[in-house]
């Protein structure tokens, strides 16, 4: 299974300019805040769910659906304790569950799931290079966007190293699942140290390799991929803005 969510489908969302996708991702976080009750947020959630299937993100949704359910349930439970309501609905032992708290918990649960759906649509249709390209076009300095790209690239390597070390240490008798909380965490020391040391060995070589290719010498950089702005960008941005406007008008009216 791939570590990232990207699925090259060649579909509508994938062909949108990375900057437009980032703008739409940020704009897509606004509508859930414009609904105060479950019924006001749920239509947007349904719309995002449809959009996720349109973006061929079904396989990725299967990866996160448990997380979505847990977040929804935890939101209801947490807000039942922390949100003050007026009308008592029922009691669980000594705890009185208020109607307003329950409704707020459900609304926030749907809201959180809207964010996950937006992120899944974005991550399914956007390779890491396009993500960092978009960030750099939005003003992120080149060195920082380069570091972010490099981090994304190195993460699977580090994880692979980590898994290999876990297996090697388990073969030597390391038991990660026994003992109390502190003991169990301390069992990870023989894993973390080799992971960090192997990473540091790469650091010096990487820096030399980068400098020998003239990294950081030129201020104006060219990009290997250029993305044209097409009708898809206008359609997507207009669409999300219309949703924001409609929900905003309903919210403030």
């Amino acid at each position: 299974m791939s570590l990232t969510f990207y699925y090259p489908s060649g579909g509508f969302f994938e062909r949108v300019h990375p900057v437009s996708k980032l703008i739409c991702l940020m704009a897509s976080f606004v509508p859930p805040f414009l609904g105060n009750e479950p019924l006001e947020v749920f239509p947007y959630f349904s719309f995002l769910l449809l959009a996720a299937f349109f973006a061929q993100a079904g396989a990725n949704l299967r990866r996160v659906y448990k997380l979505m359910i847990i977040l929804f349930v935890m939101s209801i439970v947490l807000w039942a304790f922390f949100y003050r309501g007026k009308s008592a609905l029922f009691t669980v032992g000594r705890i009185v569950i208020m109607k307003e708290s329950l409704l707020y918990g459900v609304t926030t649960g749907i809201r959180l799931n809207c964010f996950i759906l937006s992120a899944i649509i974005f991550l399914t249709s956007t390779p890491i290079e396009d993500f960092t390209y978009g960030l750099s076009k939005l003003g992120m300095p080149f060195a920082a966007s380069f570091a972010l790209t490099l981090s994304f690239r190195l993460t699977p390597l580090f994880m692979e190293t980590g898994q290999a070390i876990v297996m090697a240490q388990k073969a030597r008798g390391l038991d990660l699942d026994s003992g109390g909380i502190i003991k169990r965490i301390r069992h990870y020391v023989p894993i973390i140290v080799p992971v960090l040391v192997s990473g540091l060995r790469r650091a010096d070589q990487l820096a030399v390799a980068l400098e020998s290719r003239g990294f950081g010498k030129t201020k104006k950089r060219s990009a290997i991929s250029e993305f044209p702005i097409t009708w898809r960008d206008y359609v997507l941005i207009s669409f999300i803005l219309v949703i924001c406007f409609v929900m905003g008008a309903h919210h403030f009216s």
Partner: peptide, 21 residues
């Protein structure tokens, strides 16, 4: 350049240890 590389290494090491374990 070394600090930029160490930034990437720090980020990757953090994620690689944080997520699976």
């Amino acid at each position: 350049t070394r600090m930029i590389v160490l930034t990437a290494i720090s980020a990757s090491a953090y994620v690689a240890v944080l997520l699976p374990f």
